[in-house]
């Protein structure tokens, strides 16, 4: 388990999610793929936090300021942020799915092309 392998895993999950967004027309599938992409990003953030120390920590060994300590876990904090954003996003998306289904009794993105130029 090295940083490289984790980054490859994260990139793979991200790209698979991206493929899902681009290739599927069902809106629920799209939402699911977005969640996959989020997960790929969190993996990258956490592994950076685990494997690359903050520059502030590298400089002086004993006299570590609280700022440096707090930045050392910023990867985890970003993970928390991403997860909460994902929760908000999925709730909103679900409401949108309801409305879309109500409007056209379909959840296919292809049917929602009113913005066509």
């Amino acid at each position: 388990m090295t940083l490289d392998s984790l980054l490859i895993l994260s990139a793979a999950v991200f790209c698979i999610g991206l493929y899902g967004i681009l290739s599927k027309t069902n809106i629920v599938s799209t939402i699911m793929s977005i969640e996959l992409m989020f997960n790929g990003i969190i993996i990258a953030a956490v592994s950076f936090s685990r494997f690359t120390p903050s520059a502030l920590l590298m400089n002086n060994s004993f006299d570590v300021s609280s700022f440096a300590l707090n930045t050392a876990l910023s990867g985890h904090v970003f993970g928390v942020f991403i997860i909460s954003i994902a929760a908000a996003e999925s709730a909103l998306a679900l409401a949108l799915v309801f409305v879309m289904f109500n409007k056209k009794s379909s959840v296919d993105i292809v049917d929602f092309n009113e913005l066509k130029g």
Binding site: L22, S23, T30, I109, V110, F112, K116
Partner: peptide
């Protein structure tokens, strides 16, 4: 002029971004 690119398909836009 620009609306030629607006196909109305979400995937098209996402693909453009990518």
């Amino acid at each position: 002029l620009l609306s030629i690119g607006q196909t109305g398909y979400l995937q098209f836009y996402a693909g453009g971004m990518i």
